[in-house]
Write a protein that binds this DNA or RNA. Structure first.
Lengths: 194, 194, 194, 194
DNA sequence: AATGAATGAGAGTTCATTCAT
DNA sequence: GATGAATGAACTCTCATTCAT
């Protein structure tokens, strides 16, 4: 049991180191040796847990993405009314992007570069289903505009990534006020105007 | 004059090659030798035009960003009414992202990774001023919500990047209908609701 | 007793795995981990039976060489007349090279590369004595040419290695006819012509 | 012209270094860095002349083999009578194995291990044709036994490799006497006995 | 101005060997 | 005796950069 735990710890340390270093330097500027050092293992040890560097980022991506969606839907339940449900999810996502900014940053970088292979990208997308279901419900009820999921995501969710990155770079400070304003903008963009 | 032209051609070829290769493979997976080959020059020649690899991407970024803003504001003029002016700019930006998708993709990649140094990033941002002025005007006139420029950009403009990348990856097809819907969503998110 | 047997089995499995893998990939292209896997033991276990990789091949060589000579002389006895005795040994050697081609191949590879240390090479040579004695007798009786043992071996025995390797590579097929012809050539080369 | 010569020199130095080091240590025990050092170039330079390590040995093999056959047939001409022609070729081959023992040793090692890929092996075999033609003639004239080329080679030529290696290891000394004896043995093994 | 050849430094990865269990 | 996990050292190969021409 102790041995297994040690293995899990090492794997986790490697994942964490990957996130941090890729965030700071980018994928290709991050040598395996640096990841190993930060995780306090030998470079060779990485290869006990991952096939190669590509596999390491792929798996890291999938794991972080799973974290992200789990966090997003933790307090949501499908019986909630559409507008309220959306607010619940939106706030959780915003919280994740702010509190877990390293993770969020890593996802943003992966999603905007040829760093992750297509299979892992698909794998990562799967868990968003509850949000898509909510939107479908909202559209049927005439509360949400009849737009494609991509369009809805682009306006309702994705701007948070942009804001998170701006904050991370020190360009802005996301206070509660800004978050409320952002929510308003998000909801305005997709709700049906009466 | 012919000699100067040849120089400019080479520099341009290098910039183009950089954009294309970085788009496909990412910055660090793009060797200087490959850029040289695609531009039909010797690797050594790159160093006649740029200090080093970092300088090459920085300069490429600044140049593409300048292209982008020039395109964005080409048909805009400061005497236009706020809503109309915004529409004019938004459509041009959308057009750029679709017609010049290689350039747009390159910018998106730069904006989401530690690939560009901070100075170049700042340099690239400068030319957005007309849009910020328009927004200031809109806020004063009570047409646009009193939000920070970053928030406005996040909701009014940035989603286009997300959509462009989704289209580039083959996930969606941006027809005129989708573009009109996107514009509606963008404008809804920042306009003051009466 | 059962425990001892298990030990012997493991040692043998390691020796067999070494032969097969070295035959296919060569000494240095054969990792200890692969040998261990093929022998169904842990890499660490190899070091309970052998000092290190070099020791493993050395001991394998010596063991296979002992097999080879034991096989060669099994049906020979020193009272046989020279020509008949030679034929008996030659046929057994030919049989070994064909029936035990993995072993024979391994010896050929060892004998032609700096893979085995000199001590083991000497150790392996010792058991050929009966053949050298036969030749000495044959020379005394004026039946075999008065050549050095190396010369006799080069023409009477060694060509079989070449033929075995050609067959192994699929270049030729050694039927009974070819073997008889080979024997004739071998005997012609060393017998005294009357 | 001078630049081209320098290139050729470097390539040759690399080939020579490869031969010497592989002879002493074997293929896989010879790191590229050692080859580079012995040829007085940077490790990276090797890759300007060869695709990779495998390509380096393959090309070395082909080049040495070409040397070997060129040497073998230099003084031979197809109008010579069979026995005399064979003697001429045999002596040249023997001379090559003794005078160019490094080259000969290298070929022997390549021919007995999975070090060279099959294509290069085939490529290397091509230039032996004149010898095969001679044998065909000898067989037609009833001078040489009607054996397959492989059998003839195994007895007439290949033993020289064994002898050369024994001499190289210091086990024997090939004087003129031994060479004459070897020739006699070779010829005896393939000539038709009257 | 332009280059092809050259390279030092460092990348990802493997492997013989060890050690705690 | 047996092991799986761990690793330092060494491997092949790449690449940003330089330099003689």
């Amino acid at each position: 049991m102790a041995a297994l735990q040690k293995s899990i710890d090492k794997r986790n340390a490697l994942i964490q180191a990957t996130i941090e270093l890729v965030n700071n330097d980018g994928f290709h500027a991050t040598p395996m040796s640096k990841i190993a050092k930060m995780a306090s293992v030998s470079p060779a040890t990485i290869y006990l847990y991952f096939d190669n560097k590509q596999d390491l980022v792929n798996k890291t991506y999938i794991e972080v993405k799973a974290c992200y969606t789990a966090y997003a839907f933790e307090t949501y339940d499908e019986t909630m009314p559409v507008e309220y449900g959306f607010k619940v999810i939106w706030k959780r996502i915003a919280e994740f992007k702010i509190k877990e900014s390293a993770n969020a940053l890593f996802l943003a970088q992966c999603d905007n570069t040829p760093m992750i292979d297509e299979a892992s990208r698909q794998e990562g997308i799967k868990h968003l289903q509850p949000l898509l279901d909510l939107w479908a419900r909202g559209k049927k009820e005439g509360i949400i505009k009849p737009l494609s999921d991509y369009l809805l995501y682009a306006y309702a969710i994705n701007p948070l990534s942009f804001l998170m990155m701006a904050q991370n770079r020190g360009s802005i400070q996301l206070t509660q006020l800004e978050l409320d304003q952002a929510y308003e903008a998000a909801w305005s963009s997709i709700k049906v105007c009466k």
